[in-house]
């Protein structure tokens, strides 16, 4: 094996953080209004939805899979949630529960097809992506379902994250608190629990893991359910935020989530990844969005620059592997 100089090792080991710091300094200098407490605080808030999905996505990718359906599941869940509240005068927690179950079920289907019929994850989740989007549009009759249940107002402080929620009782938006709690919880699950170990092992070498007495089918099934559950949580929060269920929520979010994972160093080959790094990957992308906008760039430019940065981050990772 070749030896690397300490400097080269430091640069490649911390590539993402270095890029992050450089991007931060660049925007601080070049973008007026970027370096204000309010704006900096907005970055995790703006990224929170994608981060929630990206945590589940990290687990899926570590098993060697991929999940393209989560963006559609967000919309599907938001529509179901709004529909329940509108059609039946049930208590909000019950509506939330129903919506979460509906959303998670999509993950159960995906997991079932992948495990039982050996459908490649790409295909199974691609199918679910169009099915869930179709169902959302069908249920919403191609428009939005407005939440008109006054009961939801009672919970608005908790689950709603309108502008008023940006500073909550503890000074940090609830959405950010929830997002961090999920990141820490799933991060620990992945690193410290038996299930987490099995997730990594399955992605590293499925055959060897199976021969070590691990039910790899169960592991694979579970990661898709967890990911769909998180997408469902996001769907409920989106509906609450905008007070409607829009079947066009979450378009392309699965790709944002995958980008966050990849920038965070998760290997698409499976077996390697870290949810905390995914968090930083998503924040880096969020910072780019925010800063480029503050620079007054057009959305077309933002797309292009983001793409280049994602590519760069992955190339750094590849170089590190060598």
């Amino acid at each position: 094996m070749r030896k690397k100089s300490p400097l080269a090792r430091f640069l490649t080991d911390n590539g993402m953080y270095i890029v992050m710091a450089l991007v931060f300094v660049y925007f601080a200098v070049s973008a007026p209004g970027f370096l204000t407490a309010n704006n900096i605080a907005r970055i995790p808030l703006q990224s929170a939805f994608v981060i929630l999905i990206a945590t589940g996505m990290t687990m899926v990718i570590i098993t060697g899979g991929i999940d393209l359906s989560v963006g559609s599941v967000v919309a599907f869940t938001a529509v179901v949630f709004s529909l329940i509240l509108k059609q039946y005068a049930v208590a909000v927690p019950l509506a939330i529960l129903g919506a979460l179950i509906a959303g998670s079920t999509s993950g159960a289907f995906v997991g079932f097809f992948i495990v039982k019929f050996r459908v490649p994850p790409f295909i199974a989740t691609l199918a679910m992506m169009t099915i869930a989007r179709g169902l959302a549009r069908l249920f919403a009759q191609n428009s939005k379902i407005f939440i008109e249940n006054p009961a939801i107002e009672k919970y608005s402080d908790f689950i709603m994250i309108k502008e008023i929620a940006i500073t909550s009782a503890i000074g940090v938006p609830y959405l950010v608190v929830l997002m961090l709690a999920v990141v820490v919880f799933l991060g620990l699950v992945l690193m410290k629990t038996r299930f987490g170990r099995y997730v990594t092992a399955t992605g590293g070498n499925e055959e060897a893991t199976k021969l070590s007495g691990v039910n790899v089918n169960q592991v694979k099934f579970m990661v898709y359910v967890i990911n769909a559950f998180l997408a469902a949580v996001v769907g409920v929060m989106m509906a609450s935020k905008f007070m409607n269920g829009n079947p066009e929520f979450g378009v392309m979010w699965e790709l944002d989530a995958i980008a966050a994972c990849v920038v965070g160093g998760t290997s698409l080959m499976g077996g390697k990844g870290n949810i905390f790094k995914t968090l930083f990957g998503a924040l880096l992308i969020g910072m780019l969005d925010n800063g480029l906008l503050a620079q007054g760039r057009s959305s077309e430019m933002i797309y292009i620059i983001k793409g280049i940065i994602i590519l760069g981050a992955v190339i750094i990772d590849q170089v590190k592997e060598k």
Partner: peptide, 9 residues
């Protein structure tokens, strides 16, 4: 390598 170890762990 195929059946005994998860090489990257």
């Amino acid at each position: 390598k195929r059946f005994g170890l998860v090489l990257i762990m």
